[in-house]
């Protein structure tokens, strides 16, 4: 048993060493370049795109997914809370649909583990699409094109709930904002970003932002309490159901006020910020973050530099909304 442990640890360190040697960037960096997921079926992606823009998914055929998740404008609608059919107002800020493939889970509180399961909620939510699958399928079946496409992709069964979800999720997986300037910088293009941005990146690291906002999505891969230092919600006031965060999912008291750390890739496009959409400019958002999450104040100059850095994180958008 001793030998086994010894061998195990030796092996472990060797592997670690090799891994480090091979991809220093992947392991040694806080932020990684975004990559398009491989093996996506182009037909499914296209079908998913059609469905993403299909208003028949809503009860009154008034809104589609894209209604709240405008691909051209960063996958969000730019509102603190979105409006559903008949102008019903949601309770939470709409997160971007981009780069969701790398999220730890979907929704602010992570209640949907997969993109597929995420779809159910907006479809049924009375303040969103207020529909149901049988109706949707019935409506989609009227379209020979859909029927044909589903048949072609999924075979005999064709148009089903799970296939619709699969198509949409596949499409959403393709929504990765690759080729951002910072990514190019990471790849070794020192001219890809400005010196300010470089300074901003250093600040971003040194201030500790990077401790949560890391990885390829620069966030999105973990949950964190809103208000590590200080009480954000008390300071803000007007606490809503949505504020309970992850507690609503797990039921653990410790998970109260915990939210998914959002990706900062398109942060420059997705104001207003936070789950409550309470801040509409980035500087303020950074101030709040520094205060409540990092337990410090950041001077305004530094914030500007950080913003400069954040701007370099935006990659190519679908639907021509790049740059």
């Amino acid at each position: 048993m001793k030998y086994f442990s010894l061998i195990f640890y030796l092996t472990f360190f060797m592997i670690s060493g090799i891994a480090l040697a091979d991809t220093p960037e992947r392991y040694g960096s806080h932020i990684l370049a975004l990559k398009m997921p491989s093996g996506l079926d182009e037909k499914k992606v296209n079908l998913g795109r059609m469905l993403f823009h299909e208003k028949k998914l809503s009860a009154d055929n008034s809104i589609s997914c894209a209604h709240c998740h405008d691909l051209a404008s960063g996958g969000v609608d730019g509102l603190p809370q979105s409006f559903g059919i008949n102008g019903a107002k949601g309770i939470i800020n709409t997160p971007t649909v981009y780069n969701t493939v790398y999220n730890i889970a979907q929704f602010w509180n992570g209640r949907a583990k997969t993109l597929e399961s995420q779809i159910d909620e907006p479809v049924h939510d009375p303040v969103k699409m207020n529909s149901n699958w049988p109706d949707i399928i019935k409506k989609l079946a009227d379209s020979a094109d859909y029927v044909h496409r589903f048949r072609k992709i999924y075979g005999r069964k064709g148009l089903t709930e799970s296939h619709i979800k699969d198509a949409i999720a596949t499409f959403e997986r393709s929504l990765v904002t690759v080729n951002a300037p910072f990514d190019r910088f990471l790849a070794g293009d020192h001219e890809a970003i400005s010196d300010d941005a470089k300074k901003g990146f250093e600040l971003f690291r040194s201030y500790g932002c990077v401790s949560c906002h890391q990885g390829a999505s620069v966030g999105g891969n973990m949950f964190q309490t809103m208000g590590v230092f200080g009480n954000y919600f008390e300071d803000r006031g007007n606490i809503t159901a949505a504020d309970s965060g992850r507690f609503a999912v797990t039921g653990h008291p410790a998970d109260k006020y915990k939210f998914k750390v959002p990706s900062l890739r398109l942060v420059t496009l997705t104001a207003p910020y936070f789950h409550d959409g309470s801040v509409d400019n980035l500087s303020a958002a950074i101030q709040i973050m520094a205060r409540y999450e990092l337990g410090r104040e950041i001077p305004d100059d530094d914030i500007q530099l950080i913003i400069a850095f954040l701007k370099t994180l935006k990659g190519e958008l679908q639907g021509g909304g790049s740059q």
Binding site: Y27, G28, S29, L32, Y102, Q214, G215
Partner: peptide
Amino acid sequence: GILKNFDSML
């Protein structure tokens, strides 16, 4: 401290 992001763990 070798690994500085959670992507892989995720």
